[in-house]
Design a protein around this nucleic acid. Structure first.
Lengths: 299, 299
DNA sequence: TTTTTATCATTGGAAATTCTTATCATGCTT
DNA sequence: AAGCATGATAAGAATTTCCAATGATAAAAA
């Protein structure tokens, strides 16, 4: 069996062209190195070096083998270095899944914050609906998921991060005159616009407006909050908007934001990871970073 | 210390996602594999796999390590295969040096002959004057040299291949009328054309014509036999031509070839290799191939 | 609940590999 | 011929790797 040890010895031998000095270079006795070189030649079925009084020469085949060995040893060094360099909290790769009704508002604050706090972090992001994210979490393609709690998943741990209150968004010139603060049963379910199937916010909106039974007029199913609010600003209806989306989505739209009466309905955003991941420390740090970047710039 | 064994075990584990099956795949017990994986994680200072009842998951770092490991193992396989594939007489790489007054006449016959007889041979050729070839032979950049004997070199073995008689070449319309066969002192040293310094044929020509002391008229020093005979055919003088060069060099030139009286002067072509090369078998085979291809097509 | 099952970790001692020291063999140098 | 430098060989010690048996744990079944 060919070993890295043999390759390292062989490279030393090729560099020094001398068994004794090569042995010293790899901190081993000369017979030990001799033996390994011989075993290597034996295993490869070829003479790699020529033994002379005046030192050692590589055969043509030895040269060919040497150049391949150098490539291999280089790759091994790289492997060791990259694997080892990253250690500590949130250092190295982490794969995060985020639901679409959170991602656009959280990511622009979270990522820079993480990069600054944990310079060695390597973030990979995935945006999808909760069910898909949980599936990927479960088979190991994600390390953690940011979604609305509660979630149905096994073998996971969960940490609540913050509550995200709901508001009602409608066109500034909407003819409906609603008392502010709003009470939940004032909402006309026929005018309620929703995200497409699968988004948890869709279900939450229906629950809040106690309209699960009724058929919503615009059953179009928007693919994103931005699209949804675009529709709202064209007075096609109204929708529930989570607090964290307000500042970025109302800046450029013709929208009026109406609060609900206390206790305001809200969703709870949480962090989810596999119990078996052994990354509790990373997860606590990540949770803190999320809370900080979601809350920080708000004030 | 990271080992190939650990990498092989890890790859099996990544493929099977199961310690027991991975262990079976590499023909080892499960604890043995477990231990190696743990040592690897320890050494790299990073968790590579996540242990679950429902199998095994790779961490993000584990995935990164895996892809590098696959590259490394692939390179090792290639190394083993290419090194081992070639074995047997004159199979694999051989670096041959040939002097310029032999190469153009021998190589076109020798190379096809070798390729046919030893299909796995990989020939690398170098053409240079004897001194340079012997230097490269001595420091291992060549495996063998084809040159005129005797040579001054240490730690080498030598095998005489064949004698190569000298003839005198002159322009067909040369005004000198020489008796044929020629005796050596008939040559007018002032008309003798020579190769440049360093070619053994230059010294041999001077020796044959016993003109070492005299200054040759055309001290131009041609760089090759072809050039030299070009000059001869333009009636700029005459020169010594070795027998092996005659057929190809006279075909297109306006030359007259005059033999010497017996015993005709000749050079001896031989094969030279390092005593320590351990390739005596290859060398005997090569010698036979050279004799066969130099003599064969002559009759 | 308790039991069973599946899975990976741990332990203890055997087997194998690898190492060191001492010595040998060889060919060059003196 | 003796001395020197170099790599090979030998014998036993140290280290690594392995296996078989067992433990620990959590999910699945009873």
């Amino acid at each position: 069996m060919l070993t890295l040890r043999q390759m390292r010895y062989f490279e030393a031998l090729a560099n020094t062209r001398h068994f004794g000095r090569a042995a010293a270079m790899v901190h081993v006795s000369q017979p030990a190195l001799s033996t390994q070189i011989m075993e290597m030649e034996d295993h490869l079925g070829a003479q790699l070096v020529e033994r002379n009084r005046a030192g050692v020469l590589l055969t043509a085949k030895g040269e060919a083998v040497l150049s391949r060995i150098r490539v291999i040893l280089g790759a091994v060094d790289e492997l060791e270095e990259t694997a080892r360099r990253r250690s500590g909290v949130l250092a190295g790769p982490i794969r995060i899944g985020i639901i679409p009704t959170v991602a656009p508002y959280l990511v622009p604050k979270l990522i820079p914050h993480l990069r600054q706090t944990y310079p060695e972090i390597e973030i990979e992001l995935k945006e999808a609906v909760t069910a898909r994210l949980l599936a990927e979490l479960s088979d190991g393609r994600l390390d953690t998921v940011i979604a609305a709690l509660p979630v149905e998943a096994e073998n996971v741990e969960t940490k609540a991060l913050f509550a995200d209150r709901f508001f009602m968004a409608m066109a500034k010139n909407d003819s409906d005159v609603l008392t502010s603060p709003l009470s939940e049963n004032q909402v006309d379910a026929d005018r309620l616009l929703l995200l497409e199937e699968g988004h948890c916010l869709r279900d939450q909106a229906l629950a809040v407006c106690s309209a699960a039974g009724k058929r919503s007029l615009v059953n179009f199913g928007a693919t994103s909050m931005a699209t949804l609010l675009q529709m709202v600003s064209h007075d096609m209806g109204m929708t529930l908007i989570p607090e964290m989306a307000i500042s970025s989505e109302t800046a450029r739209n013709n929208l009026k934001i109406v609060p609900f009466a206390d206790p305001a309905p809200a969703r709870e955003i949480g962090l989810i990871w596999r119990k078996s991941s052994g990354r509790a420390e990373d997860m606590q740090a990540l949770a803190a970073a999320i809370v900080a970047s979601a809350a920080g710039p708000r004030r």
